[in-house]
């Protein structure tokens, strides 16, 4: 008896959790992919986030703007993991998953081989940025989060974000000019 009550309560929680988060899973996955560059890592990160958030369902129900709130939780989870990864002395040298992305994405067919090369160069250049610049460019310029949203997600003042964004872009342009990025031909 006790068991069945418990499981019914659990079912209700599970349903409200699903209703709350399921509209955001795709966007979280995209962000996670931006951070990690690997499809499997992105799925892992989102899975971990959901596992962490489920016990906090009542708190989630109180959140007004769930999209930036979830993006923030994902960001901090990523930062935690990234830091622990950096401590690991041994890592596989992994190339960015750009092949899989260009091969499977919705852009398929639109992207010429040259364009794919250019995007690969661009991705490499982004990977060379400091994490601070990289995250901001990925979230703002790639995923189109506004600076106002990012102010709360990254817990950083607007002015700081803006100058950081400009420095990051300048650095990116410099990297691409030094490299083989054919921006003017694109």
């Amino acid at each position: 008896m006790l068991f069945s009550l418990f499981s019914r309560k659990k079912r209700i929680d599970a349903d409200s959790f699903e209703a709350l988060v399921s509209p955001h899973v795709e966007q979280l996955y995209r962000l996670a992919y931006r951070y990690t560059g690997q499809q499997a890592d992105a799925e892992d990160l989102v899975q971990d986030l959901l596992i962490k958030l489920y016990p906090r369902t009542p708190e989630l129900q109180q959140v007004g703007q769930l999209k930036p709130w979830l993006a923030k939780s994902l960001y901090y989870l990523y930062v935690d993991r990234y830091r622990s990864q950096k401590r690991s002395p041994i890592e596989f040298g992994q190339e960015h998953d750009i092949e899989a992305a260009t091969a499977n994405s919705n852009h398929q067919g639109e992207l010429s081989p040259q364009r794919q090369d250019t995007i690969r160069d661009l991705q490499r250049a982004i990977d060379h940025l400091s994490d601070e610049h990289r995250i901001l460019i990925l979230m703002h310029d790639v995923e189109a989060y506004t600076l106002t949203e990012l102010e709360s997600i990254l817990e950083t003042p607007l002015g700081t974000l803006k100058s950081r964004l400009h420095r990051g872009r300048a650095k990116l342009r410099k990297l691409l000019e030094e490299g083989t990025f054919p921006a003017s031909q694109a």
Partner: peptide
């Protein structure tokens, strides 16, 4: 051009069924 290209960097599409499976795993369902 660079700003335009940044918006074009692709992501692999979300695996169909991932959202449902991931939520089911999280809730223990």
């Amino acid at each position: 051009t660079l700003q335009h290209m940044l918006k074009e960097i692709p992501t692999p599409p979300l695996r169909s069924g991932f959202a449902r499976e991931a939520i089911a795993r999280a809730t223990g369902s």
